[in-house]
């Protein structure tokens, strides 16, 4: 489960849909793996405006990364500064959670992550 995906995931429980606390999901007992991937600058620039930067800051601090700046970088900054782009790429795409749990901040439901696959199946009374 890449950090990029985690930034878009919300709690699947119906009652949490309207609550702002259901996003982002909080990683718990997370084991991280790093993969080498080719940098895809166009893709990052494309996704940048849709990233929830506050959520990303929360996630990265919970995963034990150095704090991110308050404001998201702009597309021009990323194109000019190769280091910034690499760092963001490393955090978003190369870092992934392989084992652990994702916890909803609203209802406390825990989604298990095994071998990088999160289990979002719900019992039918929660749908």
């Amino acid at each position: 489960m890449k950090v990029l995906t985690l930034n878009f995931l919300t709690c699947a429980v119906k009652a949490c849909k309207s609550s702002p606390a259901s996003h982002p999901l909080h990683p718990k007992d997370a084991e991280l793996v790093q993969d080498e991937l080719e940098v895809n600058p166009d893709m990052i620039v494309n996704v940048l405006p849709r990233l929830d930067w506050t959520a990303l800051r929360t996630t990265s601090s919970e995963l034990g990364f150095p704090p991110l700046p308050d404001q998201p970088p702009t597309a021009e900054e990323l194109e000019a500064d190769d280091k910034k782009l690499k760092d963001l790429h490393h955090l978003l795409l190369e870092t992934s959670i392989s084992e652990g749990k994702l916890v909803c901040g609203n209802c406390g439901h825990e989604y298990a992550v095994k071998e990088g696959i999160a289990n979002f199946l719900l019992p039918s009374h929660l749908v």
């Binding site: 890449k2 995931l9 919300t10 990088g116 696959i117 289990n119």
Partner: peptide, 21 residues
Amino acid sequence: EGDLLLADIGQGVPFRAGSFD
């Protein structure tokens, strides 16, 4: 290479609004 999710599409799509292209 993609991220995988074990989920039932009949239960909804657990992503926040405006996530995907």
